[in-house]
Amino acid sequence: MAYPRLIGALCATTMLVAPAFAQDWPQRQITMVVPFSAGGPTDTVARMVAERMSADLGQQIIIENIGGAGGTLGAGNVAKADADGYTVLLHHIGMATSATLYRNLAYDTLDAFEYVGLVTEVPMVVVSRKDFEPKDFKEFISYVKDNADNLTLANAGIGSASHLCGMMLMSALDVQLVTVPYKGTGPAMTDLLGGQTDLMCDQTTNTTQQIKGGTIKAYAVTTPERLELFADLPTAMESGLDGFDVSIWHGIYTPKGTPAEVNERLSKALQAALADEGVIKAMADLGTAPSPAGDATPEALKTKLETEIARWKPVIEAAGVYAD
């Protein structure tokens, strides 16, 4: 196999010359890898910010969707890409959880990437079928504790946002519900609408319209602060569920060895994009908001990734589910 060696040699040469052209970067179009299929929520976030970042950088950013294996294929691809600043990765919380969920990752999550910054943190809502008995979240907690054996909790598959949030919910309530996995949010939501399952916890991107339409019932949000969108919904934490703080955060990464100047420049472009009226409006429609400028930095993302890996590791290990 001369082929990987050839790539290795090429990578080595690009790393040697990398600092020399950091000042002139970017010279050509940049590829932003989204490790999920086109049209999904992560792809949507990527396309929103990429368009504004392109304007700031003066070079087109094109989106390449490399879906598969919970985002680890796309991330693995970027980990192996040239560290010249022309390949970047936009990934969500799965970047941190896959470090535990997948026991044979092709890359070392903490050692294969450089950081650009956080993009947005999408809050999640605990929802139920529309005729679920409890009136508010207080009642909900005691009801679920009493009826744990008879309740079903839907999720969109292992490693999905709803799966993570569901694990957090069960661990916060200290109950074991009957988990019903689906292939994606669509079918999971359909069965919740039809009353085939009882509970779910999912991102506002997927739940907002259904809650507003009255087809499902919302009980609590999973962020430390209440949301402007659902001002009357309590947070899980204020209702006594300590540490129940889940959001689907998105970050932008580059391959290890990408010059610091390039990452800084990308981070500036990201901050500019996040301050854009159009982006703020588009994110608000999805029930989320851009990360503050202070979080759209390499340091903030690095800290976030490290703490999140540490936080999810015990939760996933306790649940005993792995995706590999």
Partner: peptide, 16 residues
């Protein structure tokens, strides 16, 4: 699913 994505990009979140 792709069409839903297109709607969302357009600021229309599909729902009931």
């Amino acid at each position: 699913a792709l069409m839903i994505g297109a709607m969302i990009i357009q600021g229309i979140v599909p729902g009931p």
